[in-house]
Simulated scan of single mutants.
Amino acid sequence: MSSEQRPNPRLNEDLRFDAAPGGPPRYGSRSDKPVQYLTVADRSGEVIGYVWANDEDDAAGWLVRKAGGDEAFNKGGRWARKLHDAKARGLAPTAALAEMIAQSDPAAGSHVVPGSLTEAPNADAVRSLAATS
Rank of each mutant, 00 (worst) to 15 (best):
S2L: 06
E4G: 14
R6L: 10
R10F: 13
R10W: 12
R10E: 11
N12M: 06
E13R: 15
E13A: 10
D14C: 03
F17N: 06
A19G: 11
A19P: 05
A20P: 02
P21K: 15
G22Q: 11
P24N: 08
Y27N: 03
Y27C: 02
S29Y: 01
D32T: 09
P34D: 01
Y37N: 04
L38A: 05
V40K: 15
A41K: 10
A41Q: 12
D42P: 09
V47D: 12
Y50A: 05
Y50V: 03
V51K: 08
V51A: 09
N54C: 06
N54M: 02
D55A: 04
D57N: 11
D57L: 04
D58R: 12
A59S: 13
A60G: 11
A60V: 09
W62K: 09
R65E: 04
A67M: 06
A67T: 11
G69Q: 10
E71S: 15
A72I: 01
A72R: 10
A72T: 02
F73W: 03
G77S: 11
W79E: 12
A80P: 02
R81K: 13
H84N: 14
H84R: 14
D85P: 03
A86V: 08
K87Y: 01
K87H: 12
K87Q: 14
A92W: 06
P93A: 07
A96E: 01
L97P: 08
E99D: 14
M100E: 07
A102N: 14
Q103H: 14
D105Y: 05
P106V: 08
A107L: 10
A107F: 01
A108N: 13
G109Y: 01
S110G: 11
S110E: 07
H111I: 07
H111M: 09
V112A: 11
V112W: 07
V113W: 02
P114Y: 10
P114W: 12
G115A: 09
G115S: 09
S116W: 01
S116M: 07
S116R: 08
T118V: 06
T118F: 00
E119G: 09
P121H: 04
A123T: 01
A125P: 02
R127T: 13
S128Y: 01
T132I: 03
S133A: 08
